[in-house]
Design a binder for these strands. Structure first.
Lengths: 228, 228
DNA sequence: AGCAAAATATGTTATTTAGCATATTTTTTT
DNA sequence: AAAAAAATATGCTAAATAACATATTTTGCT
């Protein structure tokens, strides 16, 4: 990932900056490659940088009681992450790692915050991002607590489709997750993710080929997700 | 609640404003009294105002599948609410109502947003608020999904203590909730909230007298909440 | 290619929690 | 103060989900 490509990717952010800030951006930005399953940051770490996923796929998760893990959100290119903890003056309460090989650019958070103090547009950008994130999080709390297993899994499949899209066939999810990740996304045990996905396959709602999931009956999935 | 008292309560916000904005604030601010259980806003409503709870207690909740309700957060004086949806350009995805008689002041959100566009401090205030809210919401997702009933109820009791404090005896929660509200806060059925609270009473962890809950063994509650 | 480790599949059992029913008590309304 | 409605309490049953066990398949590694 070259600097030129990178700057093209984060143009949305760069466009909000003043000329002077944009010059500073070039000085401070760094790019790092993360391998599959590599940790990007961990719970308890001090947030130092604004991260922007340039390519690849990333999960943000939290470990709960008894070693269970909950995937809180998934990140696609070009999305930002890592800002909440800094703004709240906290250490990270989540961890993030790469689903697959990912390129992430980093901008020191103190530099970003300095820009925000003299750049309303940038501040309002984060107000909006945080507001969207919070809406999703609140909705997720209710879905994960109130829907039954089938509803939660169906919702997770739709969520993955919205986040990462479909292959050229217009039906196969573009992300290949392990059943364990699928379970951690849907708040269930791995065995139940396996079983429930198998049921969906038996019912011809999806077709599974290893980690490849093809959604055959979108309406059925939507219905199962909705009624819980 | 007089205008003088009100301005004293929202001084934290007023202090961030310019002189001109403060003058405008006086023109646009209105105060309204809400009776016990009165609806403040509903899911689907268009967010028009920034709300600030001056006195009383408020719940923000969301109805999920099968008519079940989840209390998402509780508000104490002097806290703001109603801003997320406006910033995200959405209608409300939650509802809010008063636990008890409450006074709430309202400032038109478009006025607030105009201020934000020319007032970095105010924008950064909301960046911080939203970041704190999001951290709580993410934590709550994991607690509510992974902890067992006793852990969730214990957490709810601690949460109420942190939010609304204790009576002069240093042990009785200052908020008197119905078992149904307690259930909606802890993601369980009303019958289970009743049963579990009774168990805590039998185990001498709390003492209950109607809706009055006295925490006898704080360490036990903390431990139950922690281990889930 | 061959081995080890990890992931998937599936059956069985145990636990947790919801659902339902009914009695009693408390609160609200008239 | 009486009546009605709502909330609380408690027992029993059913449903949902986790836990555990074991076999098979796939993946990653050297």
């Amino acid at each position: 990932m070259s600097m030129g490509e990178t700057l093209a990717k984060i143009q949305g952010l760069a466009d909000m900056l003043t000329d002077r800030q944009r010059a500073e951006l070039r000085k401070h930005i760094t790019i790092r490659k993360y391998l599959k399953n590599e940790l990007i940051y961990n719970e308890g770490d001090v947030p130092m940088s604004l991260l922007c996923l340039l390519s690849g796929k990333v999960k943000v998760y939290k470990s709960g009681v008894g070693g269970r893990t909950q995937i809180i959100r998934v990140i696609k290119p070009v999305q930002y992450l890592g800002y909440r903890a800094y703004f709240a003056n906290q250490n990270y309460v989540t961890a993030a790692s790469a689903f697959e090989t990912s390129y992430i650019c980093e901008i020191p958070m103190d530099v970003v915050y300095r820009w925000m103090e003299e750049n309303i547009k940038l501040s309002l950008f984060f107000v909006r991002q945080l507001s969207l994130d919070l809406g999703v999080s609140d909705q997720r709390t209710v879905s994960l607590t109130q829907k039954h297993i089938r509803g939660r899994l169906a919702e997770a499949l739709l969520f993955l489709q919205e986040s990462y899209g479909l292959e050229e066939d217009g039906a196969t999810l573009s992300i290949y997750l392990t059943r364990e990740d699928l379970a951690n996304l849907s708040n269930m045990t791995t065995a139940n993710a396996i079983r429930t996905l198998s049921s969906f396959a038996t019912e011809k709602i999806v077709a599974i080929d290893g980690r490849k999931i093809k959604i055959i009956d979108f309406d059925a999935i939507k219905k199962i997700s909705k009624i819980g």
